[in-house]
Write a protein that binds this DNA or RNA. Structure first.
Lengths: 194, 194
DNA sequence: CCAAAAGTGTTGCGTATACACCCATGG
DNA sequence: CCATGGGTGTATACGCAACACTTTTGG
């Protein structure tokens, strides 16, 4: 009747326009202590990995596997928020083959790809203020394909998740971009199923 | 480090055009035995509940909760396949309030509602042969709303999941309906994300 | 011939896609 | 004045929703 329970975490971030994931050749794992909640266990893992606090970012439970028995989560954090400077983040592609957690990474990516189509969770990969181009870069990194600029902007603005700050990015050697923020930095589902 | 793991199962079926769920005032649960796989544990639960074999039907893992620690699954079975004649199946609505597993049932229903929009998993609620009206009844029970007959038929046929048998239902006191089968009785995702 | 359920098309609308040029700034 | 990235509109295609009558059978 007694079993060991492990909790595993995939932490995604964006680095130089690429989707990266924490961990060198495996995802961070820890044992769930007796009477410890799943939430606090994941938070601890996240703190170890990033030096930051999970409750300030987006995370969700992915799946539970056995052999060994593990509950798997993923989380999203902007790269500049990773305070743990020895943390290793590697491009998602390097986890494709031969990686012990390759299946998990692949499934997590798929879930993330679905999720960004109908929620605002990418807020958790960006600073408070950003330009539409920066936002588009994040989408392209996650979806692993180029998007059309005009269509992307139309869609994003029509979803009503963004607020224009009225200010513009200064000091760039090109036309300055409008600065946007997310209306809410909590998970919001946008497509209503009637 | 040692924790008890439980496995919980929501079994859905269709009875008299209504979505029903197995269990009287709680969902069936069992302890995961040491070194037992999740799959075999769920299969055992399903067998107890229905007298039938899980591998012949559709099931999926839903979520893992703690306090108490449980991995929750749901499964779909046509009513005539329930061989255990003492099994209790109750309409989904009776689980709305005051039910100890109400949250789980509600989440399972939501997942099921999403799933039938882009997969063929309803095969697991129907006999091999069925009419489009019977299929529509199943969709209406799950979605809890009336659907337009013409639009429903157009959509179903265009998805390419069904085969017409060429035969018609005999002995009915109205115009006999064409009999259809599912091309595949394994889970198929129809919307391709390019 | 009547009751009961099966079967069948068209139109409008909203959303997704494809596509190319001008604008504002720094150096 | 040039290089860099920001910003904009239109036309087409496709999927979804609304909507009513005719057909086939059994009794």
């Amino acid at each position: 009747m007694q079993n060991n329970i492990r909790v595993k975490l995939a932490v995604f971030s964006i680095l130089e326009g690429k989707l990266v994931i924490h961990g060198d050749n495996h995802l961070p794992v820890t044992d769930l202590k007796k009477r410890e909640s799943l939430d606090s266990c994941v938070s601890e893992l996240f703190d170890n990995a990033t030096g930051n606090t999970l409750s300030d970012f987006y995370s969700e439970q992915l799946y539970t596997v056995d052999h060994p028995f593990s509950v798997v989560y993923f989380a999203l954090i902007p790269h500049f928020q990773i305070l743990n400077k020895v943390a290793v983040f590697k491009p998602i592609n390097s986890h494709k083959f031969g990686h012990p957690d390759a299946e998990i990474v692949s499934y997590a990516l798929q879930r993330l790809q679905w999720k960004i189509e109908y929620t605002n969770v990418v807020y958790s990969l960006l600073p408070d203020e950003f330009t539409l181009s920066e936002l588009q870069t994040v989408y392209e990194a996650i979806l692993n394909k180029k998007l059309d600029k005009r269509n992307f902007r139309k869609k994003m603005l029509s979803l009503g998740l963004l607020t224009s700050s009225g200010r513009k990015k200064k000091g760039v050697k090109a036309r300055p971009a409008e600065i946007y923020t997310f209306k809410s930095r909590n998970p919001q589902i946008v497509k209503i199923f009637s």
